[in-house]
Design a protein around this nucleic acid. Structure first.
Lengths: 119, 119
DNA sequence: TGACAATATGCGCATGCGCTCATATAAATC
DNA sequence: GATTTATATGAGCGCATGCGCATATTGTCA
């Protein structure tokens, strides 16, 4: 089974991107369209340094795309699979904790209106 | 955005389970049916201690189900969404690294025969 | 009851990782 | 060129986590 090690490492690295609350906030911020670093900082409430670090990491991983416009840099989702995974997990968690209504409602906010009904 | 913090934490915790190679090996070992701890240890090549730790964690998270049979304990997948996520990521990674054929072939091993053709 | 097999757990270590402070780079504006 | 705005980066800290060794727990069988 050793020859599969690089496979497991790659998959683990992929999931690692989404295993951090701040990065998930960033995904949530840019999933509807590209955003400036400043916008992301404002939306997430995280430090500029910290946001920049995570953005750099996500860009290196191929998750986010960069676009420079003068002074500022716009980030957008480069890997739609990431969004798909987030939606899947949100649906799953929402169904798991049916008793906790407020949290469920918040989770469903992540779904586009169309799929909100389906769930 | 602060009121969404518990949501992001929950989603991050969910993905965290899959962000570790050894736990992915365990998922791969039990995804086709329940297995004994000893069997999982043999299949993954990891230490008994380490496997037991990960199994306990995954069980506490609701990912795996336990079943005691005399001396030994059988673990099985309790959350099918986890498998779905793994398949999604495997497909994604395989398509990303088209040039690295050997790795791609190994990734596709994770898919059931039916979907292997679809991908 | 004693010995052996299967699984879990306390403890300590080492590494990774997220975070912050200060500073560096880059572009715009004066 | 100097200042201001926007973003990135080096250094260091603290904590979480994966791991292994030894040992505890639980069950089986003689």
């Amino acid at each position: 089974m050793d020859e599969l090690d690089p496979v497991f490492d790659a998959v683990a690295a992929y999931f690692s991107v989404l295993s951090e609350p701040t990065r998930l906030k960033i995904m949530h911020a840019v999933c509807m369209g590209e955003k400036t670093v400043s916008q992301i900082v404002a939306e997430t409430g995280a430090t500029q340094t910290n946001v920049s670090r995570h953005l750099g990491l996500m860009h290196r991983q191929g998750v986010l795309a960069r676009r420079r416009n003068g002074n500022q840099i716009h980030y957008s989702v480069a890997d739609p699979t990431m969004i798909e995974l987030c939606r899947t997990v949100c649906i799953r968690i929402a169904s798991t904790i049916d008793e906790r209504r407020p949290l469920k409602k918040q989770l469903l906010k992540f779904l586009p209106p169309a799929r909100k009904r389906a769930a």
